[in-house]
Amino acid sequence: MTQDQERRVKSLSRELEGWREVLVGVNSILVWDKQYYPAISISFTSLLFLFIWYVEPSMLTLFSILGIIITLADFLVPQVVPWVCGAHFWTGAHERRYEEIIKAIANIFGIYTCITTTLTTMKTNKPRTYFVSVTGMLILCAWIGNTVNNLLLTYIIVLAVVLFPGLKATGILHKYFASTISTVAGFIKGQLGASEDPTQSKKKD
């Protein structure tokens, strides 16, 4: 782990300390510590989107309600949860799980940084490749968004995000998508490697 990653982990650990009980509980559900947790995740997500489909709120109303929920949670959770759970709830096992969660969140930030660095490098060294790749992806997304119902598409994306940690923890993701993951990882490493030798990249172009 690099120094930048260590600083990010320490910073996140301090910022999310008031949420540690909630994070551990949610993480337990997302990684499928028990066999019925996937059913809970799918049912909760499906009921939530079914409610949105039934109510049909406007986009402004939906974002406003989401903002209110986030604001209330940010204010109440750090104050209420430690009082409800009590000091006896937190154990060494919970602390280790909390550290793993923080590292996972830090890794997500690292992946985001890696992707932005790759795109920036591609834009500088391979502008044609960058233009074709980005434009093609945006056209594909626009076509999918125009073909598939927006609420259904959002439901599929959210459900995939919710199920991803469990699929990864149980090895299902690696078993069925190992080749795809390796291809994407190799592409990112190749772009990062190209950024280290801009002269060679320009010759290739």
Rank of each mutant, 00 (worst) to 15 (best):
L173P: 03
P78T: 09
L163S: 04
G67A: 10
W90S: 02
C85G: 03
L159C: 11
L163I: 08
P57R: 00
V77T: 08
P57Q: 00
F75R: 11
R96D: 09
Y112F: 14
V162C: 01
W143F: 14
S41C: 12
P82G: 03
T124C: 09
S179D: 10
L159D: 07
E100G: 06
L76Y: 13
Y130Q: 00
C85Q: 07
L167P: 05
L50T: 15
N125W: 04
S46I: 14
K168P: 05
I115L: 03
L66Y: 12
T118H: 04
Y98R: 00
F44G: 09
I65R: 02
M122R: 08
R128H: 10
I65Q: 01
S179C: 05
T120H: 08
N125F: 06
T71I: 03
C85E: 09
T45L: 03
P78L: 02
V148F: 04
K175A: 11
Y112C: 11
S43T: 15
L152C: 10
N107D: 14
G145L: 01
T124E: 14
R97N: 04
V84I: 13
Y54Q: 15
T91Q: 08
S43E: 11
T71K: 02
I40V: 07
E56S: 09
I144G: 01
N149I: 08
L48M: 11
Y155G: 10
I139Y: 02
V132W: 00
R96A: 10
W90C: 05
T154F: 14
I111K: 13
L153P: 05
V81P: 00
T154C: 12
L119Y: 15
F49W: 11
I156W: 09
K168N: 10
A39E: 13
R128C: 06
S179M: 09
A104Q: 12
G166P: 05
R128I: 13
L72M: 07
T113E: 15
T121V: 07
L76A: 11
Y130T: 05
V55H: 09
I40N: 06
V132A: 01
T129W: 09
N149M: 13
T170L: 03
R128V: 08
A106R: 02
L167E: 05
